[in-house]
Amino acid sequence: MTRRDEKFDAVYRKYLPRIYRYFRQCRVSDDESHDLAQDTFSRFYASMDRHRGEAEWAYLEQIALNVLRNWLRAQKTAKRSAKLVELDDPEFTQEPEAPALPDYAERQHQDEQRRSLHEAIADLTEAQRQVLQLWLEDMQYNEIAVALHISVDAVKSRLRDAKRILSARLGDKFREETE
């Protein structure tokens, strides 16, 4: 094993579990986290000659962040170019039947609810919406505070205001939980 490989081996063993945890904490699935961790070290290997040995974590974190960013970007692109299915594809034609659509009155009710929901969200300030959105993504108050560069108290107050506005617009179902 060359000295370069020895150095890489040491970094890999020391940081693989942390890099894996880093991706898991970003709520990336288990398999994907393993793949992204391997990608991170593969990139580290390619660029390790530029690394002088100091601030190993900071160096790895930057690579990991890039890997995560590229993965998110690829997912976005994949969503936009979803798979096309041939109409005469037997797999497609043998798909189980779609569940019956709700009746007209039910659909109208759902559309109405959706519309009022979007209108209510539009009533929120940008700051309130951002906090609400991250809270609904299951982020902790302190995580939201760090991510948005605000205090934990500001997170709580914006969230409270957002919930109050939505409750006022959307009715009792939300009021019970916000009070």
């Binding site: 942390r18 880093y22 974590w57 990991a64 962040l65 995560l68 991250l134 982020m139 995580e143 991510a147």
Partner: peptide
């Protein structure tokens, strides 16, 4: 991209599991 928000919120290196 909440995944990036979570990444940014990790201001310290994660502890080894």
């Amino acid at each position: 991209y909440p995944a990036l928000a979570r990444a940014i919120a990790q201001t310290e290196p994660p502890e080894e599991p």
